[in-house]
Design a protein around this nucleic acid. Structure first.
Lengths: 398, 398
DNA sequence: GGTAAAAAGTTACCACACACAACATATTGC
DNA sequence: GCAATATGTTGTGTGTGGTAACTTTTTACC
């Protein structure tokens, strides 16, 4: 008999008791609904590998908790008694906040991923934490009735471009916003009266793409996001987000790609983000700045930009080559202007990645552009709020 | 209220029932014993967060299964009734096999990590699978009585330097042994009559150092091993071994360190293992080959080797710098000749790593030499066997 | 239209897991 | 020798999911 493989979990963990079993099973069912959309009770039974009667009880409890509801069976066309469809309750919502240099975007996202509202409020100056809170208050004020009568707010999720300590809700450094050692979650919670959480935007984007985007169903992926502020990313390894000992893992923009390169603002030389960046791209496109939506159009419109695009693609491939041998992912997902670069010449990136990887190792790796676009950060920030609810549906009060 | 942080597990998983709770708890207790050594029942109660009576029942079941035994309480010196000491049963053993270019090493390791026997049998030629099996049979024949009367063999664990598909027990490629698409676990199991498993040696070394060596208690670490055949490694992320979608993750020797470097046998340019390697080191040490134990002595004895040592350390630091921003580990553990290199000038590596990392990110990262030395692979291969037993103590029959 | 087969909901009952509490036991400290 | 403390032991209770029998609702076919 052949045994399994290299041990996976090395640390012992703690004991489980009966209530934890129930919690786990409730969590499992609700997570299926949230990630997989409405499903019949019979499907849930199959997916969870639980008994028919158990699934029934779990769904009943979720309905009781107001987290799910059942509707008439769909016409399956198959023989046998039809199974009622179970839905995650989209009226349970997360408020999402995404502060940017020139705007604050506020969203209302329902359980199950339904986007109720998405409002972008431009600002005169780079928003402070206080200003962001005021904008959110204004937006929520505008939908006061709806929130009071229709929605149940699970909390506020804030996506910040910078180094964030999610544990205590403090932004260590967000260079573009000028935030430094700034408590964020606490003041939001205090001002709005909801639970609040803050996290790095690239990490949340990874979560969003994993659940609802190009990474659906994939257990091992690398997400790379290119923005005006540099290259960030996130890694899903074995279905688990890579965090590192202090939560600063997946700083993928500082991967070495050019050992004789120029010095990066991080102190190293030849980092990915000094070689592949939006500034250099916009320069050859003849623009000072551009929204990410415009970049695609510009790339198509300016043939002279070709050499620079190809250079950036080739350098990007070097970093991806390292990621391939380090993570052996199933998929590499490119967001922001990296998605535009990819779109400009998918074949070239594919060829360069294969050349920059251990022979054969990159062949089965999918290269893809991120799918969620404008909904990316809102979806990710909502996951931040829903995480607690999904982990313990019965125990989370809000 | 401030919510936790970025969601970790993204996929829903499956449901749990009562027997799984029991299995999990048995596994938890046995794993504590195996990793943490003999402990009192009271300590186990504390660690597992289970009730006193439950711990009692679990230990009783483990004793019943022959996987643990209890001894008289130690003199704690504290007030209160003394608690009996529970031990993992070291008579439950794994047979370990480590084929090398010029020898096959066979070990007998007990649950709890006790090394009963370690035998190295030199070979005239590079051993084939068949030859390895014959050597193991000879060695086991020599201790036939002991095995029949004293030990209970849980299985055979084989550590192979090469690309291994642990799932089906086939070695895809072990260049130094000349094995290619070679079924290994199956023939071992058939010939010896025990369950058998095979895995990559560097991955097993990572496991061993994590549990019994320099990485004890650490949840995030990078292990880098340098041998004659190149640089391999393993990564523990959040207490879980990094595996990748096909099990080929952590090919750390092929991290880019020199973008104008020479071509590596893997097809890329400027890989870590083309720049940092034992061959180049031995050259300046004036030797054709040397056991790893000799390298330390040689380094101390040949001052002229200094420039090459420093060059290799500096290049190694570049790779570590990338690993620091990618994994944000708590500890980097260096084994094989990389351990010797480190030992030659720890301060230099520390300085180079700091310079090659995002400012401040490397400061809290420990750099350490691997601790297990000659026991490394035997311990790792034994873990391969014990993994199943630890995961399901009551369900594993052997 | 009626009947059989299939699939799934429902319900009552069971096995078993851990917690809890009361009690027994073994130690220290005074 | 007694109180305090910690722990083992035992019996009881709550809650978990599984099981099996029954019911309901559908399709397929005659």
């Amino acid at each position: 008999m052949v045994l399994a493989s290299v041990p996976r979990r090395l640390s012992p963990g703690v004991g489980n008791s009966n209530d934890q079993t129930r919690r786990h099973n409730l969590s499992t069912v609700l997570t299926f609904l949230h990630h997989g959309g409405p499903q019949s009770r019979a499907q849930l039974t199959g997916l969870s590998a639980l008994n028919r009667s158990t699934t029934g009880a779990l769904v009943a409890e979720l309905v009781e908790l107001g987290l799910a509801y059942e509707t008439e069976p769909a016409d399956s066309g198959r023989v046998g008694r039809p199974s009622p469809i179970v839905h995650a309750n989209g009226k349970v919502v997360a408020i999402t906040v995404n502060p940017d240099i020139d705007a604050v975007t506020v969203g209302v996202v329902g359980l199950g991923g339904l986007l109720h509202h998405l409002v972008r409020r431009e600002t005169d100056a780079v928003p402070t934490v206080g200003a962001s809170i005021r904008i959110v208050q204004e937006v929520l004020d505008g939908m006061r009735d709806e929130i009071a009568t229709e929605f149940r707010v699970a909390g506020v999720g804030i996506a910040v471009p910078g180094l964030v300590n999610s544990r205590d809700g403090v932004v260590a450094l967000a260079p573009h916003l000028g935030w430094r050692d700034e408590p964020v979650a606490e003041p939001f919670a205090a001002a709005l009266g909801f639970r609040a959480a803050v996290a790095n935007d690239a990490a949340l984007a990874t979560v969003a793409e994993s659940i609802f985007g190009a990474g659906r169903g994939v257990q091992d992926l690398v997400y790379l996001n290119g923005s005006a502020s540099g290259i960030g990313g996130g890694v899903l390894a074995g279905g688990v987000m890579l965090r590192g000992s202090r939560g600063y893992a997946a700083e993928l923009g500082h991967t070495l790609v050019n050992s004789s390169g120029i010095r990066c603002h991080c102190g190293k030389r030849g980092c990915l983000e000094t070689e592949v960046n939006l500034g250099l791209l916009l320069q050859v496109l003849g623009r000072d700045s551009a929204g990410l939506d415009e970049v695609d159009a510009l790339i198509a419109a300016v043939p002279d930009a070709r050499p620079e695009i190809e250079r950036q693609l080739d350098v990007l491939a070097l970093a991806i080559g390292t990621f391939v041998s380090v993570f052996n992912p199933e998929s590499i997902i490119l967001g922001g202007f990296l998605g535009s670069l990819y779109e400009a010449d998918p074949a070239r990136l594919r060829a360069s990645v294969n050349a920059a990887s251990v022979v054969g190792l990159a062949d089965p790796v999918r290269l893809e552009r991120a799918r969620l676009r404008s909904r990316l950060l809102t979806t990710g920030a909502a996951e931040l709020v829903f995480a607690d609810l999904l982990a313990d549906p019965a125990g989370t009060v809000f």
